[in-house]
Every structure is written in C-alpha cells, then in structure tokens.
Design a protein around this nucleic acid. Sequence first.
DNA 1: AGCACGCCGACT
DNA 2: GTCGGCGTGCTC
Length: 809
Amino acid sequence: MIARVIVDVATNQTDRLFDYLIPAPFIDTILPGMRVVVPFGPRKVQGFVLEIGETSEFDIKKLKPIEELIDVEPPLTNELLDLSFWVKDQTLSFHIGVLKVMLPAAMRAKYKKEVHPHPDISIEDMSPHLKTFFKQHDSVLDWDELIKKGTDLERKLLMEGVKKQELRIIPIVGTGETKKKRNAVRPAFSKKELEQFKSSLTSQAKKQIDLVDYFISKPTEISVVELMETTQTSRSTINTLVQKGVLVQEEVEIRRDPYEGRKFERTEALPLTEEQRAALNPILNKMDKGEHETFLLRGVTGSGKTEVYLQAIDRALSLGKEAIMLVPEISLTPQMVKRFKERFGSEVAVLHSALSKGEKYDEWRRIRDKKVRVAVGARSAIFAPFENIGMIIIDEEHETSYKQEEAPRYHARDVAIKRGGYYKCPVILGSATPSLESFARAQKGVYHLLTMEKRVNNVQLPVVNIIDMREELKKGNRSMFSESLTEAMRSRLEKKEQMVLFLNRRGYSTFILCRDCGYVAQCPHCDISLTYHRTNQTLQCHYCNHIETPPTFCPSCEGDSIRFFGSGTQKVEEELQKVFPDIRVIRMDVDTTKRKGSHEKLLDRFGSGEGDVLLGTQMIAKGLDFPNITLVGILAADSMLHIPDFRSSERTFQLLTQVSGRAGRHEKAGEVIVQTYTPDHYSIVDVKQHDYVSFYQREMQLRKQAAYPPYYFLTLIHVSDTDLTNAIRVTEKICHYLRENLSPTTLIFGPAASSIPRIKDRYRYQCMIKYKVEPKMIKVLQEIIKTYQGEMARTDLSVLIDTNPYMMM
DNA sequence: AGCACGCCGACT
DNA sequence: GTCGGCGTGCTC
C-alpha cells in the first residue's frame, strides 16, 4: 500500500505528491486527510496524505516508509481535500499552503532543533567552554532559540561544538497541539471501604477525614483545585491520600471555553416584518428542496438582517444540517456572539482572532467532532470541517477582510459559493452596501437579489447632514469640528444622549512638513512619509518600522517652520477635552484595544453610560447597537477618497453608510454629521439620500469607462527587487510574455511603478491584467512563476501574483 | 526550503 | 596539496 503525500515544503519543485510506503501498523488506520511525518531527503517533515493507492509510478524499491502517523481521525474531510485542489489552482498557491490554512494554527507543524551533548562524549570531556555552557543550562537546548537570543560568543561555541562533534543537533517535527489538562482525583475505594478507612484515621487527621467525608457523600471525580476549595484542604493532604491509595489522581483533558462563566439566556425567534419574511422565504424554500443558490440580501442598516440569518440557520439545524456564518473580524463583537449563543446555545463554536491558539483549536475540534452544528467566525471559518452543511452566510459581504492578503490569497466569498455548490445548500451574502461585483451579479440574475429597505419597528433612517469644511475655513473656523457638529455635540451632552465620532486615522499627526520649503519627512528605506507618534516623540515608518527623532530645524532649508499636520484619534481626543472640558471620551483604536478583552471592556463601559463619546477608527463602524446613540459625527469623510485605488469611492460610500447606521437605531431619532472637503462627490451625496442604487449606477459607469471590475476581471502581478533595473526588466518581460500569450481582447498594463514605489529598500513594479474571458489565464500565470522560480530562489527578486486583488498597492 | 554534491581560489 | 566558497539539483 502506498500513500501519496503533500509535504510541508513550500516550493515550486516540491508542490506535488510524493509516494511513501505505509508501514504495517498503519495499514488499517491510515486515511486521506491525515497528517504524517515523513523522511524527505535528509530530514523529516510533516505532510498530508491525499490519496491511498496500490501502485506507484516511482520505483517501489526506492520508496521510503512513513515515519509517523499523527492523527487517529483525519482532520481534513474528503470534501476539504477536493476543495484544496480548486483553491490552490485558483489562487496559484502551493498546495501545502492551502491545506495548512484549513487547519487551526495549533495543528500546523512545528519544527525545532534540539541541541544535545554527543552521546559518545561525556560532558567532562568536552571543550571547557561548552562544558560550562551545558552546566549552566539544561542538557537539552533549543537551537533556534540559542541562535536568536544567545550572545555572539555562545553562537560561536555552538558552531564549534557541532564541528568538533561534541554536540548533536536533532531535528524534531512536532504537531503543536496542546490539550489543556487538569489534575483530578477520584476515590479508589467504595463507599464502604471509605467508611472503613475513615475509622482507621486518628482524630488528629482532621483534614483527611474531611476529604474522605466529601467522597463518601460525592464519590465522583473532581479537579484538585475545586476539591481544595470546597473542602478547605491543601494539596499535601490530597497527596497523602493519593499516596495511601485511597484516591486516584488522573489528568483529565478539559476544553478551553472562551465564554466560560457567561450565561446566555435562550431567546426564541422574533416575529418577522413583511420584508424579512419575503427575504427569508425563498431561502428556506431552496434549503427544503436541497438546492444551491446564492442570495444577495441587501438590507439597510437596522433592517434586521441578523434575524433573517438566525432563522435561516435554525431551519438548517431542524433539517439536521449544519451552518457556517462568516462575520468580518472587526465586527465579531461580543454583542454578535451573544446573539448566536442565546439562540443556539451550546450548538455554536466561535472562531476569531481574539481567541488564543489553544482556544481556537478546541473550538475547531468541537466542529470536527460534531459537538456543535453552527460555526461563527472570521474568514478562515469558511473552512469549518462540517460534512453536512445546510446554510452558509457571509455577513457584510463587501468587507475586504474576506480576502486573505498573504498566500494562499483566497476570497472567503468564492470558497463559500464553491462549498454551497458541493453541499447543494443556499449561500446568503448580506450587506447594506453590497460590493459592486456582487450587486452586478444579482442584477444579471446570477445571484438571487433580496431587498429590505425599511428598518424594523419603522424606525427612520437617520438624517444625514453634509458639512462643507471649506466653508468652515472661510468662516474662520480652523478647528477639526464644524460649527454644526459642535452644536450637535453640545445638545447631546445636555440631553445626556450618546454619540459616536469616527476618524479613519489613529495616532497623533500623520506627517511633518516645512512651511517654508515644503519638505516632508520621508522614510529612508521606503517612498512614504513618516508618521509622528506623540507618545514617544518619534517619527515612524508605517511600512518598515524605521524610527527617527523629529528634526527641530528643516533638514532641507534649515528654517524653523517645521509643523505637524494631519490628525489622528489621539489628537481629536485632546481637542474634544478643550472644547468640552467635562466630556467623557472612550477612545477605541488599535492603540487602546491591543490587550485581550479590552475591546469588549470599552464597549461595555460605553453601553453602561460611562462615556458620552465613543471615538474611534474602522472598528466602531460595524455591529454597534446602543439605543442611546443619537449622533454620529464623521470628521473627515474624504480621507479614503484620495487613496489611489479604483475602489476608493466604493469604500467611502460603504464606510459612511455603515457608520451612519450606528445612529438612532431605536426609539430616539438619529442624526449624522458628515464633514468633508468634497461635499459634491456622489459617494458622499448618496450617503445623505441613503441611496445605494444611485451610487451603484454612477459608480458602474465609471467602472465601465475605466475597464475595471465588475466589467473586467483583474489579476495583478507584483514584481519587486532590491535591484531597480532588474525589477523593471522582469516586469517588462512578464508584460511582453502576457501580450504574446493572452487573447487580444485582454488588456495588459505595465510595467508600472507601484503606488508606493519602494518599501524596505525593495523597488516595486506591477503589471495589471484586465480580462473578460481568458481560459488560458491560470496556465499562463503558472508558466510565469515557473520561469522566475530559480531567480527568485537565488536572488532578491520576488514575483507575486494576485488573482482578483483587493489591495492595489 | 534545506541539504549534499561539486568545482575553483587562499591557506597550513 | 587541502579547506571552504556558494552555484546546482534533488527530495518519494
């Protein structure tokens, strides 16, 4: 018997199946989808068994046997294995990369090298330096750690030791899994025997008697910690009884429950509005018939999309099937989790980045072990290893975080539709502001469009006021708050209502500029300006972490007119305090939410009324639902509009609509104030009218003119090198090759310098492909990778291909 | 990616 | 003459 294995070596030459003999003990248990450790050349690596077969094209006598079988059950289902082929082809990724992304981080291979004293040599015979080294440390040392953290001398000693054969390096392939264990004890005796034992104890042994009494009344297993607490005894007393053989101590695996100790009250399905029912029915219909269809649910903010999702999932469960619900990382808030836990109780597993590796692993195993039937999570949860999926939902489907920006560059939306096809189940893409791609497909009838235009309980959409900041300047108002916004904030403070202020930039000042000569501090390694960080008084590069102290005189003209420009949330907070000295501000951005659980804490504080203002970046745009918010202020609506990306208008419209949606979701009416320097731009005007369709139509015209998606598909090839001329040369060759080999209707742009032409001293060039139908595309791109793989391995050259890119930089 | 094999320069 | 530089090629 032969196993065909994908090995954990991410290179072009090894991106294929390798055959291995299956040793007799594994023959009956080995299955496709299992992880193995195999010898590969001179070392050992982890691999995934994809196929089991009888024969090999390779010389059977030369096959090596599998070293180790890691799994008892295959972590990857047959469906996921099939899917992995599709994903790696579509995204031009290494197969191993796709297989790994399907598993929780804790299950990916860990490689380490252990440093041992050579077995034939006694420590005493080693060279004196090493002798002291091993005496100071444990006798088994981790090579990588020593190399990374050790001193130069230590490094030198180690190298010498290896050369002189005094040390041996043993590579270890680990699985990285850790199951949380706890010590527990249970009685080894029956009740009667315990009574007997008790009477043999002297009255001095009071604590032992307490323990025995406990087990007489409750003869079941209990964790040591819990036992100590309930009986007020110490570990040593328990140990004594273990020693005497009265109690048995065991390690019991426990599941890490990220939501431990939290009570979720069960809720029932809410009554649906007319619109909700009209949206839900066709979905249920398809589900009942066991047919696949992709639905695009466009519902304004507050129209009750979540309730539609919940009831759709409920139907899947009552049909005996499972459901996956994807939420953008940023809006996977405790509020959202709570809503799912309340409806589906212990049927829900939650997968998101705030969980520890171990917690994620445990939640993932609950899915694989069929302990739960609903998976809620961010992008990678689309690979939840269910085997009978009845419903897949992508909330906020327009969110760019569904596209993974490193290899494998997959889009969760595409994977969702692929899996939906496999399981013949409906897929819902939900959003108040669908991506143009999805809405265009719905218009063409590829997706089934469902619309919800009204908020539930007939709550009105907030009134949106657009403030022209150029007028404010003319009036002499140079602060970051317009008169209207200041007044609106004052009235909320008086009425004790809450508000949200949104600014798309964190930190303090974004750049420094010389007023005399226009000098802007630039990063020496990147073509980007440096950002001023007030906390440590430094200028920092956002791309390479270069740090320098801000100059007091202009390095260019030697004048003293250096000024800080642009403002972040930190500065807004200060300004707010100046205008309203008593205002209570809760600031939420990357800087204030770094610690685990701080996100939740800040929201709880705001929810309980501890703050008047929630001031934040992106992360406050979604999912917030507090009844007392009656004002939303958007400080710089056009900050996104000027990013060189064909989607910048779309992003602006989506973001403004999402943020606006935070206001007046309940009894109290909401108001939104949008500050902008471009009040006539359609992506801002259409927010005022809450008119998605109007925005869509205008934006589509521009996309058509400029030959962008949804009219064309895009592929972006990024070429970078420390050598500028070589980067250009390679990009030129690639463009030439594409023009020769793709159809004449396909548009090829390039070579063009990237919008940030240099990052970390690497020069960046691009080639953009726009196409409608191009059956040879994948083949041609594979050919390009093949052409440059050698040069990429040898030199600093890098060629990356992004099919369907979302980051144009 | 690692790692060994292999073919040319500066050293005991 | 050897030690070691990193170019080339392979891993079932």
